[in-house]
Design a protein around this nucleic acid. Structure first.
Lengths: 193, 193
DNA sequence: CGCGACGTTGATTTGCCTCAACGATTGTGG
DNA sequence: CCACAATCGTTGAGGCAAATCAACGTCGCG
């Protein structure tokens, strides 16, 4: 059973001992996901925490006009969780879709709660995982609210240099909250600089 | 020592026993804050988790043009934490300022870490507190990205009816990411409906 | 009382969108 | 392995949501 990538992720916080590893291995769901495959759709409830071992996903909302708005990209070693839907069993308002062929590990709500109850270490580790995501979101909200499109694009290139090579500009534009056409114009402007 | 409001907050998760209460009481900082007083400024590092027992605060960023952008309001029973600054000891990029006379309880980073190490219960409780904040932020980012100003205003009235009465429209406009003038125009439109 | 914060209105400007069109690339089924 | 479709990046003309700037009346507070 090869969930080593997942264990390695916990090593950054409180490493798991053999008993915990065995228990996690028994519960975790390993899945290969094709490009364009969904692991969550907008009318479903989010039943898993997802750890991305390989590949890349986008989390996005579709507004009433049918336009996609990317909220998050998740690549190797990132976690994806839609907190409200997951804990409150509400239908999600986002899709999660693979941008590349991917390998993921998932934990269901009952299994995660079991782990929280059985080993306090998981409260600690997931506290830190959630804090990390929270810090990202604080940063992102601040940028969306107080920067121009060009500043946001530069910040994105700076913050996610690897992703900016892997992703088509269409997807980046959607993340920045602008149209692909306008991103193209920004890029044209920048060449002169 | 009257940190009952704080203990009552923990009661929603895992309630504290007498030993834990005594230990928290010894460490928590109780402060009365005047209207317009800052508990954090943009060039400082955020050294405390803050629990609001009474009153109301705004968390905001000032852009290079000098315009304020409200990221969060925090009233009774809300927590304020600037995760990145708090854990990574970086200078914050936001101000935290009292909108009303307030009573707060604060925990310093060393004391919080002591509590995490000593009583696993605090990992659990703060995991949930952070998750709650994360769910709010997910929701807020989605709205900022995919709704018009009017839709965001209606959603705000719906989601925070109490706050919308307590706050001047100037502050609400800043939270919505629009100018006070434009909010005024939206409100004028709405009367007809 | 006087000053500063607040809410409102109107005229003008602008950042970004919409729509339409086009070539280049990718990918996919026959 | 080719042919056709879909996706992608780009450009241009025109439009709209929201910003900017300016002005004015009201109110609460020191």
């Amino acid at each position: 059973m090869s969930v080593e990538r997942l264990f390695a992720n916990f090593d950054k916080y409180l490493p798991l001992d053999d008993i915990e590893k065995a228990d996690v291995s028994k519960r975790v769901i390993v899945r290969n996901i094709r490009r364009r495959q969904f692991i969550l759709q907008e009318d479903e409830e989010c039943k898993h925490y997802t750890f991305v071992a390989e590949g890349c996903f986008k989390v996005y909302h579709v507004d009433k006009k049918g336009v996609e708005h990317n909220l998050q990209f998740a690549a190797e070693n990132d976690w994806i969780m839609i907190i409200d839907s997951f804990y409150n069993k509400r239908r999600s308002n986002v899709h999660i879709e693979a941008i590349e062929p991917s390998l993921i590990y998932q934990l269901s709500r009952p299994d995660l709660i079991y782990l929280f109850r059985t080993y306090p270490k998981f409260d600690r580790n997931f506290r830190v995982i959630v804090e990390t995501r929270l810090a990202e979101l604080e940063q992102r909200l601040l940028q969306v609210i107080s920067s121009t499109a060009e500043e946001r694009y530069l910040a994105f290139l700076d913050q996610y240099p690897a992703l900016s090579l892997r992703l088509p500009n269409t997807q980046i534009a959607s993340y920045l909250g602008i149209t692909p056409e306008f991103l193209s114009k920004i890029r044209k402007e920048m060449v002169g600089k």
